[in-house]
Design a binder for these strands. Sequence first.
DNA 1: CACCAGGCAAGCC
DNA 2: GGCTTGCATGGT
Length: 288
Amino acid sequence: MKVTQHNNCIILENVTDFNLRHVFLCGQCFRWDETDENTFIGVAGGRVLKISSSDNNITLFDTKLQEFNEIWLKYFDLTRDYSALKKVIAIDDIMKKATQYGGGIRILNQDIWETVISFIISSSNNIPRIKQIISRLCELYGEKIEYENKTYYTFPSPEAMCGVTEEALAPIRAGYRAKYIVDAVQKVNSGEVDLSKIKTEPLGEAKKMLLSIKGIGSKVADCILLFGAGRLNVFPVDTWIDKAMRGMYPQKCDAFKNIADAGDAIFGEYCGLAQQYIYFYARENKLY
DNA sequence: CACCAGGCAAGCC
DNA sequence: GGCTTGCATGGT
């Protein structure tokens, strides 16, 4: 990959294993929208970014080399060799197809607080509505950013939401999840849950800390660990993955107590990445 | 009108 | 422990 700056744009040439639609539409993030063909605008790292692709090139608009190196290189996980990982994961014909179909998927390194709240909101919900609720939350408590004559809002920090109540959250229409958001804000602001430790503590300890927040169960905790803490060795199981895995590996799924353990046993250290290829492949093709 | 949506908590046995 | 049930809201 070659990185150059032209005026106020960063151009990435000869990028492999990076497709914007695969990255943004595989269900890991909720704050990116396709505004034109192969062009997305989103908010991350406290900034608005427009990014587009053509051929083998990716363009990041209105940013500079320093910001690219400090924020976007890590955010898009551009230092990881996905070609090598796909070979490890493509254990059979189905997984070869899945890793080819979503070949441009990368696991974003998202802000962990944002993933905590986003995946609390995701429970028993559909993706369009999850995006709407998060958008209204950002409008309510985030900081305003103007970009190309439109207004965007950052994801609010725990401090910005300090003292929030269920009543105060009524306008975002999160339903029964509002009280879970309140609990997360309280536990993080009081220091009862230290999110900086989630990335460094042993996996079991980190998950236990997340599970102490109301509204976070096993699946939501795994999503936070995978998408917000870079733990590629966890295997979140939702209704889609449950159905897909039982269809793909019926014997092994029966042999283990739950599908998460089966995924871990089948795919190993990078099972979380395998999970994303399966999710994207199964959903987009309405399999199982 | 049911039924479902990247589940979870609480209440049962 | 494992298994039900209710849950806010909006879309199909």
